[in-house]
């Protein structure tokens, strides 16, 4: 399943920061249509790998291929245009824009309404139907005209997912989508991720292992910047090395 039809592959991915090796020779293969988790103790390099895959960091060495195309030197905005869209660990909304405007910003580019400086912003009203549809899917329809800064943390995460989905990405990378959330929010977002993964691939960094066990088809465990184990959740959680890595920090 892993290598059958990979949408994203990384080979020998390494990142050094002034002599400190944050990520060392990581090989990854993300199967199309799967939900793939990156887990590991704090400081294992999960977010660094994530930033490398989405091109927000340049790798020191190694290659990244997306659908067979080498994207190792591609710039982040171009990667997003190819259909590989990420979220951020700290909620990434446009705080002073309303909830509706947040989604409209994402819709502007695909709709060709981003560079027109001579037209009234009212032309963006044509995006409202689609934006409201996306917000309905994450239960934010009643917050359309509230500034994003004023909604709760869980809802900001939901808004971020709605904004990301506005681009209809083939590959979605979610950086700790459940971080800092209460139980109800976690269940809601987990259901949402399962729903959106029906016709796309999802890679997620996640600390909450019960979420990972529940959602993910495949799990890669990182430790000190290296791949420690890979497999289904059941295989990985049975691995004594993984248990050791997590000992004292989190349950496994």
């Amino acid at each position: 399943m892993t290598t059958a039809n990979p949408i994203l592959t990384a080979t020998g991915l390494t990142k050094e920061f002034r002599g400190f090796v944050a990520v060392k020779n990581v090989n990854l293969s993300i199967a199309e249509g799967s939900i793939h988790a990156l887990i590991g103790p704090n400081g294992a390099g999960k977010t660094t790998v994530f930033n490398l895959l989405t091109k927000f960091l340049e790798p020191s060495s190694g290659r990244i291929h997306y659908r067979g195309q080498d994207i190792t030197r591609t710039r982040p905005a171009e990667v997003a245009r190819l259909g590989l869209v990420r979220s951020f660990q700290i909620s990434a909304v446009f705080p002073h824009l309303t909830v509706l405007d947040n989604v409209r910003v994402a819709l502007q580019r695909p709709m060709g309404l981003a560079t027109q400086f001579w037209r009234s912003a009212r032309v963006l009203d044509t995006l409202d139907d689609r934006a409201e549809e996306l917000l309905e899917a994450v239960n934010l329809k009643s917050f359309l005209h509230v500034p994003a800064a004023e909604i709760s943390y869980g809802r900001k995460r939901a808004l971020e997912i709605a904004t990301t989905l506005a681009l209809d990405p083939a590959l979605l990378l979610l950086d700790e989508p459940m971080a800092g959330m209460g139980h109800e929010d976690i269940d809601r977002i987990a259901a949402l991720i399962r729903r959106i993964a029906r016709n796309r691939t999802v890679v997620m960094v996640e600390h909450n292992l019960s979420v990972v066990a529940d959602l993910c088809d495949r799990v890669t465990v990182l430790q000190r910047g290296e791949v420690l184990a890979e497999g289904s959740y059941a295989e990985v959680s049975g691995d004594p090395r993984v248990r050791e890595a997590y000992m004292g920090t989190e349950h496994a």
Partner: peptide, 8 residues
């Protein structure tokens, strides 16, 4: 960064 991640 968010604007970049949306492809701008």
């Amino acid at each position: 960064p968010r604007a970049i991640s949306l492809g701008y």
